[in-house]
Structure formats: structure tokens, C-alpha cells
Design a protein around this nucleic acid. Sequence first.
DNA 1: TGAAATGTTGGGGCG
DNA 2: ACGCCCCAACATTTC
Length: 475
Amino acid sequence: MTTLIWLRDDLRLADHPALTAACAAAHGPVVALWIHETRRTDEENNRHGPRPLGAAARWWYHRSLQQLAPRLANLGIPLVLARGDAANVMRRVVDTVQPTCVHWTRRYAPAACRLDAAIKQELNSCTEVHSHPGSLLVEPWLMQTANGSHYQVFTPFSRAVADLPLGALLPEPSPVDAPDGAATALSTLREDGVLQNLEDLGLLDDGPAWWDDTLEQHWEPGELAARQQLDAIDGWLPGYAKRRDLPGEERSTSRISPRLRCGELSPRQALTAARSSTAAGEDIAAWTRQLYWREFCWHLLHYRGDLEDTPMRSAFAEFPYRPDDHLARAWRQGRTGIDLVDGGMWQLWQAGWMHNRVRMVAASLFTKNMLQPWQDGEQWFWDTLVDADEAINPVSWQWVAGSGADAAPYFRVFNPELQRSRFDPRSCYVERWIPAGLDRPIVPVVNLAESRREALAAYQQVSAASAADARPERG
DNA sequence: TGAAATGTTGGGGCG
DNA sequence: ACGCCCCAACATTTC
């Protein structure tokens, strides 16, 4: 009579419809499972499952799971861990544990949907499977434009979400009741090598040796710290609308993104906290808008599973990027000779995170002034950001690169020097993050004025080609 | 959630 | 008083 809850990107106890349902319906032990998933492809090269976590995100999950396990144990729920292909793991766990019911929080990337659907179909022969909302404010398929298609433009999308009553977004949360008893079949799985200790999951492999310590100085993963952060919203939300663009300010932004990434907080908790805060309307609106961006990115990814590496505007598949190891390396290493970008890349390397305005500037330099493919930059961010999100990261890169459906016009090329003087006028940010004595070029590796002109010229090729494509054929 | 080029206006210096 | 020029300060257009 065991109930299984498969945790994925929902590492919390509160506001957790799947966990609540698992505990409420349980007539016996509840077992929680988390899988360090690897992705596979099928015969037709379709991706299955979520994108494998990058190194920084793996560190976060490791720490967050470390926090979560004892808290689940207090509820009488053992957290078991496994590594590998999710379908295989699920098959073996279900065979052994024999749950009457399996619960999980829905995910929305097409590749993950395909995998979950396949697992659900396979398990349905022997057990009930229930998927629950919980990671988005609103299910993507409930948001439609007037003509019945999905949204492609942020502004009307955000208006439509904002107009929804809060009650329509997600069902009301109920507290988690501790189930009784604990599972017993787990030792078999442990002997079979299916289940692993956290330390053996491999989440900390492949990162730099010092990264664990460094990230530890900047972050405290786990739901409890996340809740404290959100509970203190009246301390940091006032002034957000103005301060959010100043990366050098203390508490410039909420830094809540990794919490949402792994589900230590639900987006609804975030939205509710904002709406009930004492901050000014413009601050609430500005921050809420960021939550809506997250929502919009997932909305897009749900319908465009390939946007991780494929430009949404197909003309950009022909963009004349000029991959260059020397330039790409200078960018990754924070040695471009351009203060704001180097500062950002060093913040990223040290804190596993970068202020959003700096992300835009760094991405603009990479894709435009340097003419490097946005996919390469996206991959670097994917590996180094603790908040690297399957939807937000590629959508944001495409937004900057100009290849997104609702992207910034290509000719919006940021001038990083101007951006620094405007948003970091006293160089607080730059000085904080660029290591003292770093060997860094005095002359920028790209000439900003000249490379800007070249980027605009390169764009002319693409826009001319796409105009030719759009022209109706004669005859 | 740009930047640069180009255009316009108006005040002040000056012949 | 007037025209002329310069140029800052905006505004508009273009990329």
C-alpha cells in the first residue's frame, strides 16, 4: 500500500500539490524518489527527458536535496536517490516497491513530456499515476490567444496572465500531513545498486574542485532558506523597480531564480508574497513582471521543444556567425578587456550567477560584437548558472540574439561601456568581481564601434535573405 | 529591457 | 536690432 512521489524540479514541502495528494491519499508509507537523470534520444533522434543539469545547477540540487532529505524524514517519508535513465529507474523502483499510486509534478518541455507520458503509460498497467501542476502559474494549454493559438509575444501574454484571478492559477494548497509508517522494500533496491547515496549521485562531478566551497559562500540552498528570503520580501522589494538595473547595489535584485529553478519555491508563493507585500505598486509590478517572463518562457518551450538550439526565427539559421576559439575563450574567462562584461563573467564563475542586466550586455557582446553563435553562449550559461533553466536560458539568449519570436530587434546592440557608465557609474560592480591583478587585455579584444558595424552588416544578409524568402513566387 | 546619426530649437556671443 | 554662427539640449529617425 505504498505511495510513491517522484520529485523532480519541486524540492519543497510547501505549496506542493503532488506531495499533498500523495500524503492525503496514502493508506500506508510514502516514499519519495529523486533521479539524477540522463537524457536519451530515440531512433528518430528526438530528445527524451529533461536537459541534463549543468555543473552549477547540479551543485545546487545536491545541496538542496541534502536539506530536503531530513525534512522529508521528519514526515516519515524516506527520500531515495537514483541515477540514470528515468524510465529504467522507475521500472525497477515500481517493480520492487509495488506502490499503489505514483504522484509527480508535471513538467512542460516537450522532451520531458514525452518521457513522462511514456513512463505513465508503462506504469498504468500496474499502478495509478497522477501528475499535478505546481511549477507554473498556469498550464500552458490554458493560455490561448483570441484565434486559438499559443502566445508568441510577451506583452499580451503577461496581460492575459495578470488578468487571471489568483484562484484560477493553481488549486489552493493544503498542508502536508505526515503519513504513518516507513517503506521497507528499499533495502532490496539498495542492494541492487539502483538507489544511491547523495554523495555517489555524481552531482558534484565535473565541476572545478574549488567550486563547492566558493558557491557555498554565496548561496544557501534549501527550502527553509528560500522561505526566509521570501518572508523578508518587505525588506528587499521596496525600491526594486529602480534598483534592479544597478548590479553594483547591495540587494539589487531578489536572487530568487535558483529557488524557482529547482522548486524550493513555487511561482505562486512568489506571486502571492509580492501581491501582499508593503512595497509600492511599481515595485510589485516590476518584480511580478519577471515572474511572468519565466512563465512566458515555459509557455514558448512547451510549444517549441527545439528552441534550446534552434532559432525561433528560421532565417537566423543562416546567420553568418564566425566561431572563434580565441574570442569565445576570452569571453568565458572574463578577459575581454571590457569592464562590465569581464565583471559579469567573473561573477558568474565565482557565484554561479550573474545580474540580469549584465547577462544581457555580456550576451549582446558575445553574439553581436563577437559574432559568436548564441548557442555557444547559452551552453556556457547552462553549465555555470545555478539558476540555469531549460526555458528561460535559451529564450533569453534568443531574445538578445534577435532570433526569438518576440526578440529585441537585432540592431539593439548594447554598448558595454555606455551600459557601465549608466548602470555601474562608480564601478562598484566591476571592482567587486574582477580579481585584483588579473592579467587582462588593456585594449578590448574587439573594437566596439567597428564590430558593431560588422554585426549590423551581418544582420543585413539575414534580413535580406528572409525578405526574399517571404516574397511570393511569381508565375 | 539601445545606440548612433540626424534633425530641430533656442540662447548667447559676436560682428 | 539683426543676422549669423556655434552648440548644447532635446527630439526624431535610422540601424
